[in-house]
């Protein structure tokens, strides 16, 4: 948001100027309800997750059913175990690549469609928005099932249509035999499901851009691309940073799409951290291992996002 060059119309610079008010007790009153909710539902479970990660993983569920019982404390041994396993690092690497690809595609398509929404006639906007909403409203479990049909090797529409193209032989092609192709299909499901949120929020953001700023740019003879780069994008940046942050978090922990696409039996090549944590920790009732992996997931995310967190502070300070 600090990118307010002198070329920008005065309204925009003026808006960005000035510093935050000191409000005495007001800000504290305002955040109290949010703090209560956080304390209520986050602090205790988070503490419990950390405690679980410091206790021994026993093969029995006995401790779980007797309120923790006599499970010995093992310090950081669970973490050492996790970090010294090769699988963990393979999974982490796969997760990072998957996240990067998914976030990039989500952002590109989300911005493009947001801008498109702003360009078209009302009727076209209504149609596109309705489709976006429907996409958004379909539960991930169901959308994954639909994509599994579309990409089915024998009955899938995708193979059927591709096979019709001259020189392409896709009949019977199994998209899930090779995890790279399978994860590409899953990427499609994830990005498809994430586009509506970005497109709709960013379009909402675009509508907040003062019209006179855009008019002025147009009078100055700025082309569509220049207007986008120098006015729309800087204006959307705070929103983009937040949506990117959240997309990173979601795609890093993606679960439903992979889990249901592989019908609850994800092969080793499909294991990302969210899946790994679930199958190692939750579905096998090994909650200590699961808690350890969950803590590691949060730490890895924080590392990935250090840059973004700093960016967020900058935005906060600038305003």
């Amino acid at each position: 948001m600090t990118a307010t060059g002198s070329s920008l119309p005065p309204t925009l610079t003026r808006r960005r100027g000035g510093s935050l008010r000191r409000g005495g007790n007001v800000p504290y009153l305002l955040i109290t309800p949010a703090l209560i909710v956080l304390a209520l539902v986050v602090v205790w479970p988070l503490v419990k997750v950390i405690l679980l990660s410091l206790q021994e993983q026993q093969s029995s569920k006995r401790a779980l059913f007797s309120n923790g019982g006599t499970t010995p404390w093992v310090g950081l041994r669970n973490f050492v175990d996790a970090l010294t396993s090769r699988t963990f690092w393979t999974v982490l690497e796969r997760t990072l690549i998957f996240t990067a690809v998914n976030v990039a595609l989500t952002l590109v398509f989300g911005i493009a469609i947001a801008v498109l929404l702003n360009r078209v006639s009302k009727w076209a906007r209504v149609i596109l928005t309705a489709v976006l909403l429907f996409v958004w409203a379909v539960p991930a479990t169901v959308s994954t099932q639909i994509y599994a049909w579309l990409f089915n090797n024998q009955f899938g529409v995708v193979n059927y249509v591709l096979d019709k193209l001259p020189g392409v032989h896709m009949q019977g092609h199994d998209w899930f035999a090779d995890p790279t192709q399978g994860l590409a299909v899953i990427t499609l499901v994830v990005v498809w499901g994430a586009i509506p949120l970005l497109a709709i929020s960013l379009h909402a953001g675009i509508t907040q851009i003062p019209q006179d700023v855009l008019e002025a740019a147009r009078c100055d003879g700025a082309g569509a691309w220049a207007t986008f780069r120098h006015i729309v994008l800087p204006f959307l940046r705070p929103l983009l940073v937040i949506l990117t942050t959240l997309s990173v978090i979601w795609d890093f922990g993606v679960f439903h799409q992979i889990w249901f696409m592989r019908n609850g039996h994800p092969e080793p090549g499909y294991q990302t951290l969210g899946i790994f944590m679930y199958s190692q920790g939750v579905s096998s009732s090994r909650y200590n291992t699961g808690a350890t992996l969950a803590v590691l997931m949060i730490l890895a995310l924080l590392l990935v996002m250090v840059v973004y967190v700093r960016q967020l502070f900058k935005i906060g300070d600038a305003e």
Partner: peptide, 10 residues
């Protein structure tokens, strides 16, 4: 960032 599935039991 907290994965929801890990929080089920707590």
């Amino acid at each position: 960032m907290i994965p929801l599935t890990a929080l089920t039991i707590p």
